[in-house]
Design a protein around this nucleic acid. Sequence first.
DNA 1: GCGTGGATAG
DNA 2: CTATCCACGC
Lengths: 256, 256
Amino acid sequence: MALTVATWNVNGLRARMALVERFLRERAPDVLCLQETKISNGLFPFGDFAMLGYPHAVAVGNAGYAGVAIVAKMPLEDHVQGLPGDEHGRLAGARLESGERVFSCYAPNGGIYGSTQYAYKLEWFTVLRRWLDAREKKSGPIVLCGDLNVAQTDRDVYAGATIGETTHTSVAVRRAYAELLEFGFADAFRILHGEQIEYTYWDYRAGALRKNEGWRIDVALCTPPLVARLAACGVDREARAWRQSSDHAPLITTFE
Amino acid sequence: MALTVATWNVNGLRARMALVERFLRERAPDVLCLQETKISNGLFPFGDFAMLGYPHAVAVGNAGYAGVAIVAKMPLEDHVQGLPGDEHGRLAGARLESGERVFSCYAPNGGIYGSTQYAYKLEWFTVLRRWLDAREKKSGPIVLCGDLNVAQTDRDVYAGATIGETTHTSVAVRRAYAELLEFGFADAFRILHGEQIEYTYWDYRAGALRKNEGWRIDVALCTPPLVARLAACGVDREARAWRQSSDHAPLITTFE
DNA sequence: GCGTGGATAG
DNA sequence: CTATCCACGC
């Protein structure tokens, strides 16, 4: 049975709610994973989502920083609200009645290369991988969506960007990300589109969108049972171009 | 020759520019006096006003606090930018080619009754009066517009408000304001509307507008030559009710 | 309840 | 360049 899962780093849910509404009305995914909601659970607009046909939700947030959520048309069971010790709101999870596990994930940005934040970022991938090892199986249908804050290869960054040892492109961060993938994940976009160049994030500054100076750092990672059902996976560049949009575009993945 | 002068405490010009534009398009006064622009002179949107048909302007502002300006369809001469020692931006002035002097004025709020800010407020009225005495004559055509931050009588405040000794109603502040009037000013609204109850400010909080719990603290003060020409003076309550409006309404005065 | 500046984060 | 919090002023 067809299932469409979208993921969007909204860069502030309160400031973006009107566009999130537009997105849900026009694209109508079954499930939407949100990152950088920057809103505490008590203020999360559950009612607004319910009015839009998404009455089921799991939110993990703190005021003003990070924060993730999942909203869905259908019931969400076995809510996951944060990794153990996750004070930022970087992982939300749920199981659909049809059995698929969905995660909304916001990896640490890493601040400045070599900083403590960068060290935390590397460590965080290990923590996530271990948590998955202890709890999930690659034989189960899992889709982990979100802003993983890593450009896996140089073709995931626009030509001309500083690559090499940066927070998003270093050997160490790519290794940490690769170890997450080795849990049993494949990148849905790469499965369907091979080495095609595509981005999901364009800085607000310096006309990056106009110049197509982007980064592909938002992904839908799938275990084999969902890889087998992959029907489509694409970046909604139109939504990135909407007035007052997030600096990230939504990524929409359909399973058959 | 007819002259329409409007005054509006906009509570932040940058946040209010769209509504100021609407006001100018729909009401089309010849001159608009602004208070609480909260913008430094370097950032003042002279160009935007010029595009709207108000190419002449005098602005006196600091970042984020107080700030006044006058914008006009016709040339403004003899600019006044602040009282001597006025670091806040509380007085702007200019002379029209037709001879009228226009002032945009933002009296200190006074903070808490009895505070140093309150003492400064009382002193400020004296400074303004003395400055006028040294510079202007009541026989000249002067209109001093703005937020004077005094409710001259108890009928200038909604019933139920705390009056008596407050920053806006104390015996001392009313005396200081009366001494300003004694320069030779009459309150245009009172001249034309007698003891009619009307307000120009309604707090954003507690549904004050809905309950009509207002204050008449924005005025157009006129010397005898302009009193003789008074044709109309009214509060633009509609503009106060616009979405995302200031907490003050414009006051529009017409001279024939 | 709002608008501002400044700090913090991205 | 944008969104958040916080402090401040009103």
